[in-house]
Design a protein around this nucleic acid. Structure first.
Lengths: 198, 198, 198, 198
DNA sequence: AATGAATGAGCATTCATTCAT
DNA sequence: TATGAATGAATGCTCATTCAT
């Protein structure tokens, strides 16, 4: 199993797993609880995914695939670059908040105690996301809109800044609105913190 | 107990705890292992800290206090602002890498399953750090060096960007040097990604 | 079901079961594995045999029937007794080694945790084998070749001695040949260990 | 742990383990049940023996050591050989029946699914017992009482014959007395099955 | 007759915590 | 103060069995 994409129960399980894993983290998530939320017997979890680690891996991988696909879809527009960049930030923020469960896992779950193989898989997913962002930045550079800067590092930085602000937003929903967050992010990412024409 | 500051064993325990907790995260760290590394019997852990959660809280709190104190010390200089800002970034990066264990905990260990009381304590430590950064930004604004921007959000963003890049650096030491990372961070934080005369 | 003798799948299952059960013993054998080796779906196992215990019982019973039948066939000869006795030992040893899987089960699988009903069935098979040996001994006694001795106990002893030596042979194939084993067995069973003119 | 010889709880556990393991075999024995019978908490089992397999190994090894020691003690007599041999058979039978639990394990538990390391350990114990018997036979040969015969094979045969008859006795206590069993065994082992002076 | 997805009771093992010394 | 033997609740995983198709 572990790879057929279409069983109903399989989807129920992946959904429940995404929720529970992101709420509690890998180690604190209980297979019992996932089974309960997925409305399947515990054995069904293991019939479909041979271990907790592999269920976790599948949750992250398949979830992330969907998200990246979605962002790509939203960005097929032919907008001029400044608007394109604005859209990128907005899209990522919105999707992060929409799928905060998965996003939280991907950005934060590095904790050991997971099979090394699975850890590598998660790292691979994270990398692919970073590379996707790096692509966007590179396009901007080629069109002359983005300054010459280390691609990988700036992509990592961009991911980190969005993760951090969105996490904050989710934990303190009263302190700022999504619009404010997007505005601040876009402002900082575009022209930095310093004032005036430096 | 939990508050007397001077026992030798207590320090041994806190040191061991910092190492183990940062290597393995809260849930994967075992009291046995901490006791072993601290050269202390397991009972002694509980004689000094009444639970794993409280030991974790003490580790984080006392560790962070030291770090913030150290940053403040390094920043008492009367440098003009641009250099001051550069120094701030450099200091935080250096301390993050130096205390990556603790930093990692503070920036990433949100996973529940820890006593709520302790979670609140960790959040408090994180907040204090964010506020410290916000203060720095505010000073820059008052002196006219930093553009008007939401203080809290930009502080959160700054913390996130540094966390993300430093974590990346630690996991992929071959991809970039500390100097490159500092340069990229300073560049992005100062003037953002867009090219042109901002 | 459990009694129709002619399905192809049924035979495939019994063959696979004999192999797996003897390799791993009753408790360690898994129905999955038997189904796999029999080239049959798991459900088919249960369609033909209503439980693991009953499959085990059928495996043992039908297997043993064949073996006893075979020994009887080999012994229809009209050899004079000494040669007849020699042939008996040789045949049993050869068949034990040939069907070591089944033999191992029948001589060693006493472990409980199997349905009592099935345990009784196995015991019955074992008994029948002991009785078969006892018959042989009795014949020898009647012809004056075998000393007066408790029939049942000596049959049990004979079975035990053969089982023990054959098991040893299987586990340590390098320590002795089949011929040596047969010779030693025949020697001990014929005239015992003591030297001198008995 | 696993090697200190003197804790009270440790002994309680080993006694309970011997009983349960021999009643149910390795796979069917439950750690819960052993803990219950030993009057300790389940955790205490694991505090003293790091796994079920190791507990099993310790049970077999330490138990067997005691038995072999006991047989050796009973055989220090300076009896002339025929009586010595009789005593050997009698002692082994009596001890087998006395410690039928352990004896049963050592002679029958070959089932896989136990750690290989532990299986090897059990095989080692069995071997040592076989060697002990071989020594006895060798002594008899040197004194001229026992015929020239393969030492190892005859020792294996002797162990097997005793095991088989004793097991039978335990399962069918009504069919023969211990004395009858000893008599039959001694008779067969001394002069075999054939009558007269062959 | 045959299948295989689904089930859930059962079990070994872990580990924070306690407490007698 | 310090210890470490003892505890037992908690949990991942297995596998015989069922049943809708």
């Amino acid at each position: 199993m572990d790879s057929g994409k279409t069983s109903i129960k399989r989807k129920q399980i992946l959904n429940a797993a995404a929720t529970i894993f992101s709420q509690k983290g890998f180690h604190q998530a209980r297979m019992d609880e996932i089974a309960l939320m997925a409305n399947v017997a515990k054995g069904t979890l293991y019939y479909n995914f041979s271990s907790k680690s592999l269920l976790f891996a599948a949750t992250v991988t398949e979830g992330m695939e969907g998200i990246v696909r979605q962002i790509r879809t939203e960005l097929v527009s032919d907008l001029p670059f400044p608007e394109h960049f604005q859209l990128l930030v907005t899209s990522i923020v919105r999707l992060y908040l929409q799928h905060s469960d998965l996003a939280h896992i991907i950005f934060n779950e590095i904790s050991s105690g997971i099979d090394d193989a699975v850890l590598v898989e998660i790292e691979r997913v994270r990398s692919r996301f970073i590379e996707f962002i790096a692509e966007m930045i590179e396009k901007g550079q080629k069109k002359g809109y983005i300054k010459p800067i280390d691609l990988k590092l700036s992509a990592v930085a961009l991911a980190g800044i969005i993760d951090s602000v969105c996490s904050h937003l989710l934990q303190h929903p009263d302190e700022a609105t999504e619009e404010q967050a997007v505005a601040t992010l876009h402002d900082m990412l575009s022209t930095g913190l310093l004032s005036g024409g430096q």
